[in-house]
Simulated scan of single mutants.
Amino acid sequence: MDHQHASSFGTAATAYARHRPDYAQAAARWALEPAPGPRVLDLGAGTGKLTATLLAAGADVTAVEPDPAMLTELRRTHPGIPAHPGSAETIPLPDASVDAVLAGNALHWFDMTTAGPEITRVLAPGGVLAGLWNTLDDSVDWVAALTEISGPAVIGPRDTPAAWRTATAHLLDTIGPAEHAAFPHSQRRTADSLVATLATRAGLLVMPPGERDTTLHRIRAFLAGHPETADGEFTLPMLTCVLRARRH
C-alpha cells in the first residue's frame, strides 16, 4: 500500500463528498446477494458514498473510516449511522458481528496481510467480503482519449475496466474464491465538475502544485475541445465493478 496516496483524501474531504460518484444500486445488491444477513460494514467508508447506496439497498450499515476529515463528512451526511474511527487493519467491532464487509474504491489500499484476518474475524460464518470500484467506461472513444490525456497518475490501472480485475482479484484470496461482475453506471457532469471530480484522485492530491495545475489545465483543454463535453452537461459513462468472496 502507498501510504502517501492512501492518506491523501482527507485534504479534499468536502470536494470528495460533493463530486465523487455514488455506486450502481445493482452492483451493491449483487455484492450482498450471498450474505447471510443484513448487517454490513462499510470499511474505509470515506465520506459515505457507498454507505448511501447500501442504505438504499436496505442494509443495516456500520461505517469505519481512518481519516478524521472524511469521517467528519460522513457523520454530517449520515448522522444516524454508527460511524467509527478505525482501519481495515484494526477494525473496532466484535467478532462475527457483521454479515458482509464492503469497501468502495478502498480495498486496494488495504494491507491484506493484516486486514485479511481482521475482516475474517468480524465476519459471521458464510459472510461476504466485496470490493466495489467506479471505473470509467473506456469502451467509449472520448473516455478512452480522456484516460490517455490525463495520464496514469490521474486515471490509473484500477480506474478502467481493462485492468481492475487483474489488479485487485488477489486481494480476496484470504477470504475465499473471488467472483466478479460489472454494472453500467453513469453520472451527469459538466467540464468543470468532471475536473473537480478528477482533482479528488490520489494521484493529483499528492502531485507538486505546479505539476497538478499543468495536468488539470491539460484536462480542461481536452474537455473544451471535444463536442461531447464542450457545451453544458453530459453523461459520464462508467461501470461499477465488483469483486466478492464468501468466507470459507
Rank of each mutant, 00 (worst) to 15 (best):
T166Q: 10
P38D: 09
D159W: 00
F222I: 06
E89C: 03
I155C: 06
H226I: 14
A69M: 13
I175P: 00
P117C: 14
I119E: 02
H78G: 07
A88P: 05
A162Y: 13
D42M: 05
F183K: 00
L55T: 07
P227N: 01
H185D: 02
A130T: 04
G80L: 08
P209R: 11
A245Y: 02
P117S: 05
P237K: 09
A17P: 10
A115C: 03
A181I: 07
T72C: 12
D213C: 05
P125G: 10
T214H: 11
L123E: 01
E89G: 07
L223R: 03
D22G: 09
A56C: 02
C241Y: 03
R220N: 11
L171W: 01
A28G: 15
L204Q: 03
E148A: 12
G131E: 11
D159G: 03
I175R: 06
R220I: 09
A181M: 05
A199H: 08
I149N: 02
L71Q: 12
P157V: 12
R165N: 04
P66G: 14
S87R: 07
F234S: 00
G80K: 02
A115V: 07
T11N: 03
M112P: 00
L71M: 05
A145C: 03
A31R: 00
A26R: 07
V98G: 09
V140G: 03
L205G: 09
D67S: 15
G210Q: 15
A31T: 01
E179Y: 02
V195S: 11
L236W: 02
P79R: 13
D141E: 13
P85V: 10
H226P: 05
A153V: 13
G58W: 08
L205V: 11
D213V: 08
T62G: 14
L123H: 08
L54V: 02
R29T: 08
S97F: 15
R75P: 08
L54A: 10
D192M: 05
A191T: 11
T14W: 03
